[in-house]
Design a protein around this nucleic acid. Structure first.
Lengths: 354, 354
DNA sequence: CCGGGTGCGGCAAGCGCTTGCGCTAGGGTT
DNA sequence: AACCCTAGCGCAAGCGCTTGCCGCACCCGG
């Protein structure tokens, strides 16, 4: 059977509480006895029972992580980062996937909240007005969604999107298409808003399609609509959609990067190996995950009621092979490039392996 | 504060134990009182405290899942399947990623084992002789690795690999290259063995390269070696490597599917969106995950010491765009196709969207 | 009319750990 | 020499739940 504190106490002919202290609060006990106890504990192969400890101290050493879809390549890096960061702080991660069902999020959170110290909600799809309920449940930090009064780590799409539009404008595109993400997605709203603004600024015509689920299949579906739209460039809600789109366009013998330009969002690992490689807006998911853990853990042993931190991460365009000059190539005149010159945000677009 | 059984007992003017029973063992208590208690519990918003329960019954309702690398697209579908299946049985999943470090696996397992009812080890990299230690720790089922005396759900590569070789032979390839996976990978050994056998059977020359880590970058690295090898077709340890390989070959202006054929293993979601789409051996990861949960949970409340089940899942070749006729195309004579005719395993290769 | 079921409910002993409090003995202070 | 302080340790009360066991009514058959 498993060795308990009591076993060790017996072996050491001391009291259970001394053993407990020797192991978990070492300087409350005489160095000699401490050594002895620790040695015996090691010899007996003692490992503290986290369940019992949790019950006693009211802390589990586990945090819950809820994501919409593990299979979406945007999330694994986040999960991994959370995992890694938590692990380094002796914290385990309870994972839940809601399969993109907004309604399940609260349910999962409710269940998890009882067995974890805190929750990290990544890209929650729950409608605005019910978001507050999460906060009641347990300490929670939101990733990729700003929530009033709760710590949120959000991603500012505007830089990346502005860069994307600049990039397209510079390439001569004047009519671009946006493939919307899920209907009530907060990210989608933000991206769309940023895009509208950038398009207005550069006098680019914006055509909206969708909503689409963030899945390859949706992109495939979108492809035909895109072709009908007459746009020369398209920005997709995420890489998944962009990839599906590209695959389908290729089937139609359209050469992406020449006949039509495609930009994704997320800069997921797949961007590099797709063909052509996918120009994408880099979203720092891993950083977000790591920061989320830090904030959550800090929040746990802080006197609550200090201001909920909101950290904002930046995005940037990563140019690869899927974007190129607009097909009806015309001479670049001062007039056509004019809008660009008015831009305030400096182009930080970077070119990577393509 | 949180409502406990005691609170409800007080409210109902009954004893704590009756409340407990009414809630978790309903037919041990009179229907009337039961109803009343359940109603009050609901009204008071009671939720049983899983920690306390776990301490009392010695079961946590949590299982541990250890995978080598969440970022490898082979794993998310498995994780997701485990998640989903466990969820349906009121079980949560504690996830750990070992970053491909074999040595960490035992360590993580040891820690997790204290707070879970059982463990699922996916594609463990731990060397053979230490595998037994996992079994001591907790009920465990292995996925994608056969372990003596422990429930294992393994994937039989031979069918898929035989199909792959047949496929290549039919296309006229006579000299194929295998990119080995990690040095001490069990899967790699199996794949390699199956491949050797198939190649011998069809008198195909087999060139081995590697080992390589299962990452895109490794495939990029492999590309140059492959070109030097003079092989007309290559089978990679996994899709990641295959994708990196293809990307690099494309950079060198080699047209995959025409100048050289590439086959991956895993049939990960990326196979469909790569260019060209990747011919790959389908590995039923999701099924494996689901079955693993079933077996583990069954194992938990079975009289142990009944035989450790070993379930074997099959693989099959999914043909897409990355394979084509060998470049030095010659007439297919009876002689050159001869070896194929001797094959016992019927070709179940399926052609999907490519 | 009485013995023995049977159906319900309560008591209390845990599960393994933490921690406030009190006791003791030794050393320092004045 | 009387006093206080402190370091070190033990006692015991929980944390919230489960569950074996016992007692009590009540009902049945004999």
């Amino acid at each position: 059977m498993r060795v308990t504190l009591a076993d060790i106490a017996k072996a050491c002919e001391t009291s259970l509480s001394t053993v407990s202290r020797a192991l978990s609060d070492p300087d409350k006990v005489n160095p000699q006895t401490r050594e002895r106890i620790q040695r015996v504990a090691r010899e007996m192969g003692y490992m503290t029972n986290p369940i019992a400890r949790a019950l006693a101290v009211g802390r589990t050493g586990v945090i819950g992580l809820i994501v919409p879809d593990i299979a979406n390549p945007f999330f694994p890096p986040i999960i991994k980062a959370v995992q890694a960061r938590a692990g380094r702080k002796d914290t385990a991660v309870l994972l839940a996937d809601t399969d993109e069902h907004a309604a399940d999020e609260l349910e999962r959170a409710r269940v998890l909240s009882k067995q974890v110290d805190g929750l990290i909600m990544v890209s929650p799809r729950t409608p605005e007005d019910r978001l507050a309920e999460f906060v009641q449940l347990a300490p929670v930090v939101f990733v990729n969604r700003q929530v009033e009064g709760a710590p949120s780590i959000i991603i500012d799409n505007s830089d990346g999107i502005t860069q994307a539009v600049q990039h397209l404008v510079a390439l001569g595109h004047r009519r671009i298409c946006y493939l919307n993400g899920p209907r009530r997605s907060w990210s989608n709203d933000r991206r769309r808003a940023a895009l509208k603004e950038a398009c207005a600024k550069y006098s680019v015509e914006l055509i909206e399609l969708g909503p689409f689920e963030p899945q390859v299949q949706a992109g495939v579906h979108a492809a035909d609509l895109v072709q009908a739209s007459g746009a020369t460039a398209v920005i997709a809600y995420d890489d998944q959609i962009a990839l599906g789109l590209m695959a389908r366009l290729a089937e139609h013998r359209l050469q992406v990067g020449r006949d039509i330009s495609v930009i994704g969002i997320d800069d997921s690992p797949m961007s590099d190996v797709a063909y052509p490689t996918l120009t994408s807006i880099h979203v720092p998911g891993a950083e977000a995950g790591a920061v989320a853990v830090d904030i959550l853990l800090a929040q746990l042993d802080a006197d609550d009621a200090d201001p909920a931190p909101v950290v904002q991460l930046e995005t940037r365009l990563v140019i690869r092979g899927s974007t190129g000059p607009a097909p009806t190539q015309r001479l670049v005149t001062t007039e056509s490039i004019g809008p660009l010159l008015g831009g305030e945000i400096p182009s930080r677009a970077t070119r990577r392996t393509d």
